[in-house]
């Protein structure tokens, strides 16, 4: 059914911390691995070892450079997957009912046996979160690892999306945004979690934490006064002695050169 539910009981989603993501792409690989071996059609690759490899991924990491007015440019790694939007255009445009948003937890899914592969849902997603699999001809997207988070065969610590479980930097957090006391809701409140392209009116559930302001050494510690330009006493002697050793400015000179000085 491609009409959106008026309200979902829970709002499961991710918080992605742009401050701590190191751009390692581990989440990309663990996502591809889990979702190729489990729920739904595998994420195929075309020409994987050839000259023009390409394939289906549900999570991709971009890198951007920001240039503040004062201070050096900042490099920000930017993982991007489905944001499980509350007002998901990808759901309402679907002609077959294959795309839907679950009432119980707000996860946006594709029923692959109903999908005709028209691609319209991918056209309607501003974030590029959907990719049509070239081998299967059906639309693939992040499932929030629906086959992990409710999977009682897995140990408790593994019942989170594969990307969250994998991230070595702790940059990805999974939780229920409908609960104001959840880990993700608190992170969003404390760190000013933001929406991507809010003007599109998609009301994304996933939030991004902006990079924290960078420390600047001038603000942290005053530079000490210079006490002497040239060393004196013991240090002056040490300086000269070290200079004479091999490798020092005078250490490699021949006897003759030293005499002429």
């Amino acid at each position: 059914m491609t009409q959106l539910p008026a309200k979902t009981e829970r709002k499961l989603g991710l918080v992605i911390d742009l401050d701590t993501c190191v751009g390692c792409h581990a989440c990309v690989i663990s996502c591809k691995g889990w979702n190729t071996e489990n729920y739904g059609a595998p994420l195929s690759d075309q020409d994987p070892s050839g000259a023009n490899p390409r394939g289906t991924f549900l999570n991709r990491v971009h890198s951007y450079e920001c240039q503040p007015d004062d201070g050096p440019a900042q490099l920000i790694h930017f993982p991007k997957s489905c944001l499980h939007c509350d007002d998901a255009p990808c759901v309402t445009v679907c002609p077959t009912g294959a795309s839907y948003k679950r009432v119980e937890d707000g996860i946006v899914l594709v029923n692959e046996s109903d999908c005709i592969g028209c691609g319209l849902c991918a056209w309607s997603c501003p974030y590029g979160a959907r990719e049509l699999d070239a081998a299967e001809g059906v639309m693939k997207k992040c499932t929030l690892c629906i086959d992990r988070i409710y999977n009682e065969n897995l140990p408790q610590e593994d019942r989170v999306p594969a990307c969250v479980r994998t991230c070595p930097a702790g940059a990805r957090h999974f939780g229920d945004f409908a609960d104001p006391e959840s880990n993700v809701s608190r992170l969003v409140a404390e760190r000013g979690g933001m929406d991507l392209m809010p003007e599109m009116g998609t009301a994304p559930v996933n939030k991004y934490l902006p990079p924290r302001p960078k420390d600047r050494i001038e603000d942290k510690a005053a530079t000490l006064e210079t006490v002497a330009e040239e060393p004196t006493g013991f240090f002056a002697w040490l300086d000269r002695a070290l200079d004479r050793l091999p490798g020092g400015p005078t250490g490699n000179r021949t006897q003759k050169e030293t005499e002429t000085l």
Binding site: M1, T2, Q3, V91, T92, V93, C94, P95, T96, G97, A98, D114, C115, I116, G117, C118, G119, L120, L132, D133, E136, G137, V138, M139
Partner: peptide
């Protein structure tokens, strides 16, 4: 351009929301 033209008949189901 459909991935699964054989299922095209399903495209008649969602007239309430979908222009397609």
């Amino acid at each position: 351009h459909l991935g699964h033209p054989e299922r095209a008949i399903k495209a008649f189901t969602q007239w309430r929301s979908s222009w397609l």
